[in-house]
Amino acid sequence: MFKGSGVALVTPFCEDMSVNYSKIEELVEYHCENKTDALIILGTTGESSTLSDEERIKIVETVVKKNAKRLPIIVGAGSNNTKHAIEMAKKFEKLGIDGLLLVTPYYNKGNEDGIYKHFISVAEFVDLPIMLYNVPGRTGVNLSIKLLKKLSKSKNIVALKEASGDISYAAEVARLVPELDLYSGNDDITVPLMSLGAVGAVSVLANIEPKVVHNMVECFLKGDVKEARRLQLKYNGIVKALFVEVNPIPVKKAMNILGKNVGECRLPLGEMDSKNIELLKEELQKVGEKV
């Protein structure tokens, strides 16, 4: 779907908590100018679960128009309602995007047969490449190797965003399901996952350090493992601070501290603890950001 750094883009809000579409345009331009390799929108970091269908469609329309085919656009259409996921995937496809991100069904969870049929049902209704999203900490479900192997036989299911944080599991995916392109979904282990064959990252850090994440991935792909490792270790302090509270509370706070003015998170995500804000500022300063 892409090689390099895909930003898990935040959704900016105005003071009245409506979507700030003009700010979305600014962010798209920022990433086009700062080495981001793909735009991943309406995911966890994009607070998709708090957006209406109408808002989602307008966000995709805004990104597609502003991007003007400069970067690949991958849109989150995942749901715990299969029918709704299919409907949204079909609508997004008509807007001219490049791929879909489908998170594992959450809350109702599903058994292996149900999850298989859920993903395959979406894949059968679109012609876009699909990246599965494994994030058991959010969904309560970890995709089994057996299920991934079965899903990889679909011509449209081509990639996995791996965000379990389990290196052993990722190694088994790489060993036993090489049909799926692997992407790091955890900023603190991007380089380790690339050593197992990952071709890129879907990054929260890229919202504030797009060039860094791009360079980290590019260096590894070009064989400069030493520099990739240096960047990984240098920025892991700020990465940890970005996840000291539930994502995307810290990254939006960091962006606001740095003057990007993306607004607050919609409820039920509340204000960041003051001690954690100070930690965030300290880590931003350590990597050379002015706060």
Rank of each mutant, 00 (worst) to 15 (best):
I120R: 05
K91Y: 08
L132D: 07
Y133M: 10
Y106W: 12
I97P: 12
K90P: 02
L128M: 10
F125P: 00
V122A: 03
I115G: 05
G96R: 01
V141K: 06
E124Q: 08
K94S: 14
S79Q: 06
D127I: 00
I130D: 05
E112A: 15
P136T: 07
F92R: 04
E124Y: 00
I97N: 10
F92K: 00
A123T: 11
K90G: 02
D113S: 07
E93N: 02
G114T: 10
N142C: 13
E93W: 03
G110M: 12
G114V: 11
G78F: 11
S152I: 00
H84W: 11
K91L: 15
G96P: 01
P136V: 08
V122R: 05
P136D: 05
F92H: 03
F119H: 02
K109Q: 15
L128V: 12
A85K: 02
P136K: 06
Y116Q: 07
L100D: 06
I86N: 08
Y133F: 14
S79M: 05
E112F: 08
L128C: 08
K149I: 00
I97E: 10
K153T: 06
A123G: 10
Y116V: 01
L95I: 03
L101W: 00
E87N: 11
G114K: 10
M88F: 15
H118L: 08
K150T: 04
K117D: 12
S144T: 13
M131I: 14
H84R: 15
D127Y: 09
E93R: 03
G78T: 11
G76F: 14
A89M: 09
N111Y: 13
L143K: 06
N81F: 13
V126L: 09
F125E: 14
L148W: 03
L128T: 11
L95P: 02
G137L: 15
E124T: 02
N108C: 09
D127A: 08
I120F: 04
G99Y: 08
K155D: 03
I115H: 07
M88I: 15
S79Y: 10
G96L: 02
G99H: 03
T82V: 01
V103L: 09
G99I: 05
P136R: 04
A123K: 09
K149H: 08
Y107P: 06
K153P: 00
L148G: 02
I130T: 05
G114W: 12
V135C: 13
G114L: 13
E112W: 03
L151F: 06
D113Q: 06
L101D: 01
K91I: 15
L102M: 14
P105W: 02
H118E: 04
E112I: 04
P105Y: 10
Y107S: 03
K149V: 01
I86D: 04
P105F: 06
V103Q: 04
K150N: 07
V75F: 14
H84A: 12
V75A: 14
R138I: 07
A85Y: 05
D113K: 12
V135I: 15
D113N: 05
